[in-house]
């Protein structure tokens, strides 16, 4: 049987401990070991963005990070974007703007877009497209995703 390694990190503001095989990706650890299946597997080679999570302040494709590499790090997944039952303005904007259909790409888009708005509260359309260039969608039509990010940015500005 493969050996496993103990990993401790912070996920969505909670300290988590888990065992993983050295070759398991962070994506596999999140989905299969920790039951955090909101992070999706699309391509498993870093090209589609469905598995995007925040790790120590950076967005990363979790399929390209080893589970053992997350030792000591702080991770935010889609499950950590809402505060309890209160959706983040991005989540509200995505569902109101019809910026999602099948929904597999949605968690990655929202995590990546949140990282953008955290850094740049007023991105223009070009900046949104550039930032989200690594997230692929097969069925929704990106136009509505751009509108959703703009709407969320406006909502966050009004709240200030």
């Amino acid at each position: 049987m493969p050996t496993t390694v103990r990993v401790e990190c912070t996920i969505n503001d909670e300290t988590r401990e888990f065992l993983c095989e050295p070759r398991q990706s962070l994506l596999e650890c999140l989905r299969d070991v920790l039951g955090l299946t909101g992070t999706k597997e699309g391509c498993n080679d870093g090209n589609c963005g469905s598995c995007t999570v925040m790790m120590d302040g950076r967005i990363v494709p979790s399929c390209l990070v080893l589970g053992v590499e997350s030792q000591g790090s702080e991770i935010t997944t889609i499950e950590g974007v809402a505060r309890g039952s209160e959706l983040h303005p991005l989540q509200t904007a995505f569902l109101e703007s019809a910026a999602l259909q099948c929904g597999i790409c949605t968690p990655g888009f929202i995590v990546a877009a949140k990282a953008l708005l955290d850094r740049n509260p007023r991105p223009d359309e070009h900046e949104i497209r550039l930032w989200l260039a690594n997230n692929l969608c097969r069925c929704t039509g990106y136009d509505k995703i751009i509108r959703a990010v703009q709407q969320a940015a406006a909502t966050l500005q009004e709240a200030k």
Binding site: L36, T37, G38, T39, T77, I78, E79, V81, A82, L87, Q91, T92, F94, L95, E96, L100, G103, T106, P107, I110
Partner: peptide, 8 residues
Amino acid sequence: GIEKASGY
């Protein structure tokens, strides 16, 4: 929309 946008 809510369950899809929240990852659940």
